[in-house]
């Protein structure tokens, strides 16, 4: 027996969280060309910023999203200027940048743990539930799905249709040539990092509203987010949407399969990653290319 409608909705919720966090990652990854593992902490910071408005009942969810976005944007921009920019300017290798990002992640994560405590916390929110036929959906899930799709589509048009968007793509494909054409490289990079971290923070607020807060919040979901970014093809938003859908569907229908044969649903990630590996074998550069 399987309730396909509900499982589809569940998959969409799982996918949308990955998608929202993935948009920010693919944006910065596409530009700076190294995996920033401290991205997990941008997610966590957003979630904790939300506490300012949502620790007590009756808070405004939208304000939490905005504050999370702004603070994380600041953290993202400072992370780039203080940690990564000096390294990039000395032409350090990918490995060095990666290790630096892991270190930065540790510093941020443990600072969050010291500041807010390691015990879990929760937003005080109750979401209305709607019945569509026998399928149940909450207002939070609807907002999450809409926000994630909107973010990906808007960013796609931003990158292809606007001046700044084109500047980002120019820097991504050839930084030196871009500078020569009069693009203010540093400003564009800072803007991108702020925006990417802001999107991560919004995903964090959603994750916290759906589950609870802990300093490990971002780290716990970083792997699938990196996975969809790779699968979608770094820098591609339509690819990202498809990749997030694949992972979400694989995980949730994986649960049906696993619980049917009596295995632990912990393997849902394994199923999702098997599919991921399969796709990458056929299309090594991701779905978009």
């Amino acid at each position: 027996m399987i309730d396909t409608g509900q499982i589809l909705v569940n998959s969409l919720v799982t996918s949308s969280l990955y998608l929202l966090a993935g948009t920010g990652l693919t944006l910065t990854y596409g530009l700076s060309r190294f995996p920033n593992f401290a991205y997990a902490e941008f997610i966590t910071i957003g979630a904790y910023c939300g506490l300012f408005f949502l620790a007590k009942p009756g808070g405004f969810f939208l304000l939490a999203l905005v504050l999370g976005f702004l603070i994380a944007a600041l953290v993202g921009a400072s992370s780039y200027s203080l940690v990564f920019r000096p390294l990039v300017e000395r032409k350090t290798s990918l490995i060095h940048l990666m290790v630096a990002s892991i270190a930065l992640g540790y510093v941020l994560r443990h600072s969050i743990g010291e500041g807010w405590g390691w015990a879990t916390k929760s937003y005080q929110l109750m979401w209305p539930v709607y019945n569509i036929g026998h399928v149940r959906i909450t207002l939070l899930w609807i907002i999450l799905i809409a926000t994630a799709v909107l973010a990906a589509v808007v960013l796609h048009f931003f990158l292809t249709r606007t001046r700044t968007g084109k500047a980002i793509r120019a820097i991504a494909s050839n930084p030196d040539l871009a500078s020569v054409t009069g693009i203010n490289k540093q400003r564009v990079i800072l803007l991108t990092w702020s925006f990417g971290a802001g999107l991560a923070a919004m995903a964090g607020v959603f994750r916290a509203a759906d589950t609870r807060l802990s300093p490990m919040l971002g780290w716990d979901i970083l792997l699938p987010i990196f996975a969809i970014t790779m699968l979608g093809g770094i820098g591609s938003f339509y690819g990202l949407i498809v990749a997030a859908l694949i992972l979400g569907l694989a995980e949730n229908f994986g649960v049906v399969l696993l619980s049917g044969i009596g295995l632990s649903t912990e393997y849902r990630m394994a199923i999702a990653f098997l599919i991921l590996i399969g796709v990458l074998v056929i299309r090594p550069k991701g779905l978009a290319r």
């Binding site: 919720v13 995980e251 949730n252 229908f253 632990s264 649903t265 912990e266």
Partner: peptide, 12 residues
Amino acid sequence: KYDPAKLDYRSE
């Protein structure tokens, strides 16, 4: 059986 760290139990 579920993973206590996954925190996404809708499909289970």
